[in-house]
Design a protein around this nucleic acid. Structure first.
Lengths: 154, 154
DNA sequence: CTCTATAATGTTATATTGTATCGTCACATG
DNA sequence: CATGTGACGATACAATATAACATTATAGAG
């Protein structure tokens, strides 16, 4: 697994949804109305959103009560299909801006406003994996998140 | 902030407790019987322990019911004083083997058995901080954890 | 040493996050 | 139509975390 560098044409709006649907298709998963709603809600949040936040948003959008349960199931699928990522240090989820390529994302989480951006630096995440291997550990998923203060809040 | 390399004479048993007590003292915090109990319980676990696990262990050790609440308070102090660290991806806490020196720890968490080891590689964590700064972010605490399989479970 | 201010802990309640179980519905296929 | 499968709903519950306020312990001032 070698690092790769590139610039992303970040999908947005419909293009983003298309990319997500395609990623789900590649994972052999359907793209249902419910999943689209959850995805829309997820994208609608600026910050990482909890499953309950999303359940509430979807409930509002659909004018009926949607249980967190269902949202969790769908979020899990999203994470598996690389359509969303779980931000561990926030117990929350964020949409993946480019589901097409697999990265070990690095998240920058502002403790002040909650805004979360992500950077891709494969050289860093690969050195993390390497260090783990050197310790006799077989890495599956690096979790690299940085808590701190974003430019706006500094 | 430059990296530093060293070998640790890992404190254990009483020496570990002493190191913890000293670290708390440096942080201007007391070392009470309750805090000693929580620390003992924390050290007694091989794996990262949840606040509730610890509450249960302390309850057993003291023959009375200790509420999770109190444990959380003390764990927070421990984390602040660098006596323990929170493993974000496990919602659990682990004792810090060398509270004397400040590291951005890297945790290797086995998804199979839960065993968690840590490595200190300041060059990696520093490059994480650097990458964050390059993105206009002011890092406070990098969270670097690796999920995977430990040598024993491989 | 006693008084008092403050820190530490206890107690209870509640909020938030996450899983498990099972029933029902929609749809595809023979 | 019968039947199988995957998606979703509904409910219950488990696990994690915080809030609010009462009580107890402790350090320092006097």
């Amino acid at each position: 697994m070698t690092g790769h560098a590139h610039t992303h044409a970040l999908p947005a709006g419909d293009a983003l949804t298309d990319a997500a649907r395609n990623a789900m298709a590649r994972a052999g998963e359907q793209w249902t109305a419910m999943r689209a709603s959850v995805f829309d809600a997820l994208v609608g949040f600026e910050k990482p959103a909890s499953a309950y936040d999303i359940a509430e948003a979807v409930s509002r959008a659909q004018g009926r009560r949607v249980a967190a349960n269902s949202v969790y199931r769908i979020l899990d699928l999203f994470v598996t299909a690389n359509v969303a990522t779980r931000v561990e240090s926030a117990n929350a989820y964020i949409a993946n801006a480019h589901p097409d390529c697999e990265h070990d994302c690095i998240f920058l989480v502002c403790d002040d406003c909650g805004a979360t951006t992500h950077i891709d630096d494969d050289s860093i995440t690969e050195s993390v994996r390497m260090a783990a291997r050197k310790a006799g550990f077989r890495p599956t998923k690096p979790v690299v998140e940085v808590r701190g203060t974003c430019a706006d809040c500094a």
